[in-house]
Structures are given as structure tokens and as C-alpha cells.
Design a protein around this nucleic acid. Structure first.
Lengths: 115, 115
DNA sequence: CTCTTACGTAAGATCTTGCTTACCTAGGAG
DNA sequence: CTCCTAGGTAAGCAAGATCTTACGTAAGAG
């Protein structure tokens, strides 16, 4: 990854780690502190802190600056860009096969006309 | 990334590169050879070949083994897993805000009971 | 004040990624 | 056969990712 990475690349890169995806899943039920997030994993707390930073820089979560307790919570609009990219390209995928489909149906399309 | 990476991580990692996303976009209009894919980029053809290998190992494209011409084409079901993950978690995101929504609505929910 | 808790960050080891150039194979034209 | 085209692969390097341990800081308890 180059020095300056675009937002979409950052989001997909953030999602390309099982630990980070698990963190996102666990935040869906409510905010958690870094210490709480780190508990189930076998890695050190600073490692989890770095994962959280990656998620934050990708715009997928935010951290409150509340004293020494800094709960992490989801940023709902964070995944919109990735979601939109996938949706758009899935649509293109499907259009390609719809065209094939239509082509195949032109061989015997008679059943739908007499309704 | 560890020695063995799960499929979802491989897919997201493959999507986390602008060149590879661009390759996928260009394949939506039909299959292209590695040489054709490499033409617009300023990097070497082997570099593009390696990007194509990454996409292939993620299950996003396939290569025909036709003689020395090996056109790359999309594998439509390749993005399903990523799409499903995003959809599922976007849904969880939304449910979280629906619950908030419902909670707010419980302050004045009387209109729906007398149908 | 000191001590604890929660957390970030710096330094460093190690692995992976993304590129390069150089080289190799396979098929077709002559 | 030789030559060209298409493309995969190896070696090597710079940069980044992921972890570790060690340390620093800020807020509250006593």
C-alpha cells in the first residue's frame, strides 16, 4: 500500500483481518472499551489498540474522548462506501448474466406472451 | 496476515488495492488477457500478472487455459461472501438504530393498535 | 502526595506486499 | 529448425503490516 491510500482501499484493508471483523461484530451490540475488546484475544492489549486505530482511520468506528475511559462505537455510515462499491459491481456482474440470460431466452420466449 | 488466511480476508485484501479493483471493473464488460489488462497501467506486465493471481486466489476471477492466450473473466459468485458479510453487518447496524427508533416511537405508539 | 486503571506510543523483530528485472515455457508462423 | 508472442516465475528490494515489550500520560481513589 502506497504512502497515501484512498478511502475505499483503507476500508477493505481494515476488513481484511479476522480480528478486526470480529471487533466490528462485537461492537454491534454496543460500545466497548479497548480493554474489554482485548479480553477474548490471545494477543496483547496494545496490538488490539492498533487494530482499533486501523478501524478508526478507515472511518468504521469512532472513539469518545471521555476521560481515561474511551469507549469504541460503530460509525454506521463507515461501511457505506464499501457497501456501495460491492453493490454497484454485483449489479454489473448480474447485468452481464442477465444479458446472457436474455439471449438464451430469445431461443424460446413464447410462453410469456400469451398471458 | 498469517500463513493460512480465510476466504473472506483474502477477498477483502484483494479488493483493498485500486489497481485490482480497476481490473475487476474492466472485466465487467468482458474477458481480457493479461497483456490487455496491463496496457493502461504504468507498472510492468509481471506486476499485473501478480495482481491477477491475487484476484484468482481470492476466487474473484478465473483464467481459461486456452493455449498461450489465457483470458481472464469474472467469477460472479466470487464476491458473494464479501457481499453477504457487508449486508449482514449493515443490517446489524440498522437494527441497532431501528431499536433506538422503536424506543423513541414507544413514546407515542397508540395509532397502530386500533386497526 | 502515591497507587491504580485505562490507554496510547515508541522501538524493534519478523513477515508480507508490491514492485522491479531477468529468465523460462508453450504455441504458432516462417 | 528459428523467431515471435503470451504469460508465468524467481530473485531481490523497499515499504508496510503485525505483533511484542517497555514506557508515558491522564484521571480518580486513598
Amino acid at each position: 500500500m502506497p504512502v497515501t491510500t484512498d478511502g475505499l482501499s483503507r476500508i477493505f484493508a481494515a476488513l481484511a483481518d479476522p480480528t478486526r471483523r470480529d471487533i466490528l461484530s462485537r461492537l454491534e451490540t454496543g460500545p466497548l472499551s479497548v480493554t474489554e475488546l482485548a479480553a477474548p484475544y490471545s494477543m496483547s492489549r496494545p496490538a488490539v489498540s492498533q487494530h482499533v486505530t486501523v478501524l478508526e482511520e478507515a472511518g468504521l468506528i469512532t472513539r469518545s474522548a471521555a476521560a481515561q475511559y474511551r469507549p469504541c462505537h460503530l460509525r454506521p455510515e463507515g461501511m457505506d462506501e464499501a457497501s456501495a462499491w460491492i453493490a454497484q459491481h454485483s449489479a454489473a456482474w448480474e447485468r452481464r448474466f442477465e444479458k446472457l440470460d436474455q439471449h438464451l431466452r430469445r431461443t424460446a420466449p413464447d410462453e410469456e406472451r400469451n398471458a
